[in-house]
Amino acid sequence: MMDGFSDDPFRKDVLAGLSKPQKSLPSRWLYDARGSQLFDEITELPEYYPTRTELKILDANAADMANAVGTNAVIVEYGAGSLVKVRILLDALENAHAFVPVDISASHLKAAADELETDYPELLIQPIASDFMASNLGARLPEGDGRTVGFFPGSTIGNLSDAEINRFLTSVRADLGDNAAFIVGLDQPKPSDILVPAYDDAAGVTAAFNKNILARINRELGGSFNLDNFEHEARWNSEDSRIEMHLVSTADQTVNIAGESFSFTRGETIHTENSRKISRAAFSDMAAACGWRLEQTWTDENDYFAVMLLGAD
C-alpha cells in the first residue's frame, strides 16, 4: 500500500527527519495550502514586525529600486507566497516585461497568480510550482530586453543554513545570468523580547501554523499524530542568533507514519524551523562568495530589517 509513496520527497524527508536523534522536519514542508494561508495571517499579527517593517521599506524606496532595476525587467520571485510585496515593486517599475513567481504550494500560487493577472493585464505572468531551492530554473524563465531580477523578500533567507544559503545564492546567480540583480530581505539581530513574541503570538496562529505539518503528515502519509499531544514552542538560540520553532511532545507516545513507527518521550521535540537574524555585513560576505556584489541597502529607522540589492559580479 505504501509503494506509491516511495519516490515522494515529502515522505523521504519526514521519515529521515523523524529518525534523527533530534527529530526535525524541513521548514519548506510547512507551506502547503493551509500552511500558506496561516502564514499570511501571521504576517498581519501585531507581534510579527518583519512584514509591516519590510513593507514600509519597500514603500519608501520602491522608486530607487526601480531605477536600479531599469526598464523591461523580468522579475523572478522565489518563495512567492501571496504576492503582496512584489506589487509595490511592479507598480514602481517602468514597462516590466514579465513576472515569474516560484512557490512550492501549487494551489496557493495559482490563486495568487490569477489575481495578479487580473490587476496587471499587460504583464506576462508565468508561475512555476517548485521548491525555490531547486536548481536549473533559468531555462524556464522568459527572455526580455532588460535586467533579470530575483526578488526574495521576507526573512526566509534566515531559515537556511550557511551551506543552503551558499547553494541558493549560487543557484540564483546561475538562474538569472549576467547583469542580473537580486533583491533580498534580511531580518536583523535584535533583543529576544522582540523576537520571541513574533514567533509565538498570543492568538496562537503561529502554533496552528507549526502544528499544521502534523496534520499534513496525517493526511498525505497516513500518519497517526494526535495534534493535542504536541505544543508549539519558540526558542531564542543566542549562540546561533536564531529563533527555533519546535513541536514539543506532551506525553510518551508512538506515532505511525507510512508503515513506520516513531516513539516520543514526554518533552521530546521536533525541530521544524530556524529563523536566523543575519547582519548586513555577514550576508554581504556570503553573497560575495557566490558571485554577487552589494549595490544598495535600505533599512527602517530602528534597523530591525534590511532590504539589500545585489548585482551579478
Rank of each mutant, 00 (worst) to 15 (best):
G4N: 14
D7Q: 13
P9R: 04
F10C: 09
F10V: 06
R11K: 14
R11Q: 13
D13M: 05
V14S: 02
S19K: 03
Q22I: 14
L25N: 01
L25P: 02
P26G: 09
Y31E: 12
L38M: 03
L38C: 12
E41R: 09
I42P: 04
T43Y: 09
R52N: 13
D59T: 13
A60P: 10
N61Q: 13
M65C: 13
A66H: 08
T71E: 15
N72F: 11
A73Q: 05
I88Y: 13
L90Y: 04
D91A: 05
A92R: 01
A96W: 08
A98T: 02
F99W: 05
P101C: 04
V102R: 09
V102P: 03
D103F: 06
S105Q: 01
A106T: 07
A106I: 08
S107Y: 07
A112T: 01
A113H: 03
E115C: 09
L124Q: 11
L124C: 08
M133N: 14
M133Y: 07
N136V: 06
L141C: 04
P142Y: 04
P142K: 00
F151V: 05
P153H: 11
S155E: 12
I157Q: 11
G158S: 10
E164N: 06
N166I: 06
R167K: 12
F168D: 09
F168I: 03
L169V: 04
L169K: 02
L176C: 00
A180C: 07
A180R: 08
D187H: 00
D187S: 00
P189N: 00
K190L: 00
I194R: 15
Y199P: 06
D200F: 05
N210P: 07
N210Y: 13
N212A: 02
A215Q: 12
A215P: 06
I217T: 00
N218L: 05
E220K: 10
F225G: 01
L227S: 06
N229R: 12
E231S: 14
E231I: 10
H232T: 01
A234I: 06
R235M: 12
S238L: 12
S241K: 14
R242K: 12
R242W: 04
M245H: 03
L247R: 02
T250N: 11
D252Y: 01
Q253F: 07
Q253I: 01
E260F: 04
S263C: 01
F264W: 08
T269S: 15
T269K: 11
T272G: 08
T272Y: 10
T272C: 11
E273N: 03
S275R: 05
R276S: 14
R280T: 15
A282L: 12
D285A: 14
M286D: 11
A288P: 07
A288V: 07
G291C: 03
Q296Y: 07
D300Y: 02
N302T: 14
F305E: 08
M308V: 13
L309T: 02
L309E: 13
G311Y: 07
A312Y: 06
D313C: 10
